[in-house]
């Protein structure tokens, strides 16, 4: 499923667009950067409540489909700027991580 479809279906607010046509293969959830570096696969959408600058580098280095900040967490303007500069898709949602993960799981499994 393309990123723009995921954005629409989950009702995400887009802060940095990245590549809306990028294919979201699967997803990964973690707030530990080294864990994401170790476990996330290229094309994964990363759902987290970690908001600081390094999320952009991690997403970029792992070739992730994008980053979703849950639970109303808002990144600093510098983080948004960095994401735009690096072409990393950055989205936010007021909904808790668990709900987003549950719904995304259904979507990506093709049962949404």
């Amino acid at each position: 499923m393309r990123l723009k479809e995921v954005v629409e279906r989950l009702g995400l607010e887009v802060l940095a667009q990245g590549d809306p046509d990028k294919e979201v293969n699967w997803a990964y959830t973690s707030d530990l950067l080294s864990d994401v570096m170790a476990g996330a696969q290229p094309g994964d959408l990363w759902l987290t409540i970690q908001r600081h600058m390094n999320i952009v580098a991690v997403a970029k280095l792992r070739d992730l489909a994008g980053v979703v900040l849950a639970k109303g967490i808002k990144p600093a303007q510098e983080v948004v700027g960095k994401a735009q500069e690096e072409g990393v898709a950055l989205m936010v949602s007021d909904r808790p991580l668990f709900e987003l993960c549950g719904e995304l799981y259904q979507l990506l499994r093709g049962r949404g």
Partner: peptide, 23 residues
């Protein structure tokens, strides 16, 4: 500060891609 962490590795990634190293 952690704000700059990732800057060098992002640069390395870019350099290797430009050098034609496979993904």
């Amino acid at each position: 500060s952690f704000d700059d962490v990732g800057v060098v590795s992002t640069e390395i990634k870019r350099d290797l891609e430009e050098a034609g190293v496979e993904r």
